[in-house]
Computed example of a mutant assay.
Amino acid sequence: MDNSTARPVDNSSRDRTVVVTGGTRGVGAGIAQAFAGTGARVLSCARRPPERPLDGVEFAPLDLRDPPAVRAFFAALPRLDVLVNNAGGTPYRLLAEADAERHARVVELNLITPLTASLAAYEHLRRSRGSVVMVGSVSGTRPSPGSAAYGAAKAGLANLAASMAVEWAPEVRVNTLVVGMVRTELSHLHYGGPDGVASVSRTVPLGRLAVPADVGAAAVFLASDAAAYISGASLHVHGGGERPAFLDATTANREK
């Protein structure tokens, strides 16, 4: 891929290979299917296969917390054009309710494994003049009570991506998707069912939670030729963000 000139979005990507970590469900599945829709060869790697096969997506078993296995996986690929570091997540856990080792495992999954995969993929990406897309979170840009280790890891991920973009330029572009609330098959665990989802949706300026396809479309854009001059950037995919709490607390503009 020639990164020197901007071109329209390339919807004919049959010669490209894309790896999506954690691409078996939720946001990861949405990203994998979005790339499959461009005609690319898409590999989804995770510890367990998807509950149902994803159209146009190949599954490869891989524990991303096993560096030798990660290096062997990428070394076996004939080529690689795009790496999407999506694997991650965390349960709700207040800091004082767990020991440091549990929080460290959250940081490992959300920060160290993307670094491990990126390093293992580097030579492929350098040869193809490819790109890395990190899947970050709004939790890394604001206080995250109940997921503090996760938020800290995602903040670190954005910084890692920005530094990587400088070190690996001009051969490899690196960008971050800063993702807000997404409606997935596990949304009820976070928001409390349909009523909870509806209530939370009303806090988003665009009036709804994202769906995985929204994140997938943004990832495809950042990896496309249309984004050839975008590197080291953070693209917010959060429906407009969050309404500042003080606006609801103030009495200055309320009707009397």
Results as ranks from 00 to 15, higher is better:
114 P>H: 10
175 N>P: 13
95 L>M: 15
133 V>F: 13
127 R>N: 03
175 N>Q: 11
159 N>R: 02
51 E>S: 07
157 L>W: 05
100 A>S: 05
94 L>F: 14
179 V>D: 12
141 T>M: 03
170 P>R: 13
110 N>G: 08
123 E>N: 06
100 A>H: 05
49 P>E: 07
54 L>G: 10
170 P>Y: 11
116 T>Q: 12
50 P>W: 04
130 G>D: 06
109 L>F: 11
168 W>R: 12
161 A>R: 07
181 M>C: 06
59 F>Y: 07
56 G>M: 00
113 T>L: 05
174 V>E: 04
115 L>W: 12
176 T>F: 06
51 E>C: 02
143 P>E: 07
155 A>F: 10
94 L>I: 09
128 S>M: 09
154 K>A: 07
73 F>C: 12
106 V>Q: 04
82 V>C: 09
60 A>Y: 02
106 V>L: 08
127 R>D: 08
104 A>I: 05
53 P>C: 11
71 R>W: 11
169 A>G: 09
169 A>V: 06
164 M>V: 02
103 H>N: 14
165 A>T: 07
179 V>N: 03
57 V>T: 08
105 R>W: 02
182 V>S: 10
178 V>T: 15
75 A>C: 13
132 V>S: 04
67 P>D: 09
158 A>Y: 12
117 A>I: 00
76 A>Q: 15
103 H>M: 05
81 D>F: 06
166 V>G: 01
73 F>V: 06
156 G>V: 02
117 A>D: 11
154 K>H: 04
187 S>Q: 11
177 L>M: 08
61 P>K: 04
140 G>R: 01
85 N>M: 09
64 L>Q: 09
53 P>N: 10
127 R>I: 04
88 G>R: 08
78 P>V: 10
68 P>M: 15
79 R>H: 09
136 G>R: 09
185 E>G: 01
183 R>D: 14
168 W>D: 05
183 R>E: 12
90 T>W: 01
48 R>N: 12
167 E>H: 15
184 T>S: 12
118 S>I: 03
137 S>T: 00
93 R>G: 00
178 V>F: 09
50 P>V: 12
142 R>T: 01
112 I>Q: 14
185 E>L: 10
95 L>P: 10
74 F>S: 11
51 E>L: 14
132 V>H: 15
55 D>L: 10
136 G>M: 06
117 A>P: 02
126 R>M: 05
192 G>H: 01
157 L>R: 00
94 L>T: 13
76 A>H: 09
142 R>A: 14
47 R>G: 10
58 E>D: 00
169 A>Q: 08
63 D>N: 06
114 P>M: 11
148 A>D: 07
127 R>H: 12
93 R>I: 13
89 G>V: 04
65 R>L: 06
148 A>G: 15
179 V>Y: 00
98 A>D: 10
63 D>R: 05
111 L>I: 15
149 A>C: 13
174 V>N: 06
135 V>Y: 02
174 V>M: 02
180 G>Y: 03
82 V>E: 04
74 F>W: 12
87 A>M: 06
47 R>H: 01
70 V>F: 11
162 A>L: 00
114 P>L: 09
171 E>W: 02
86 N>C: 10
124 H>G: 04
55 D>P: 08
143 P>V: 04
172 V>N: 01
116 T>C: 10
65 R>H: 04
98 A>Q: 04
117 A>Q: 08
53 P>R: 02
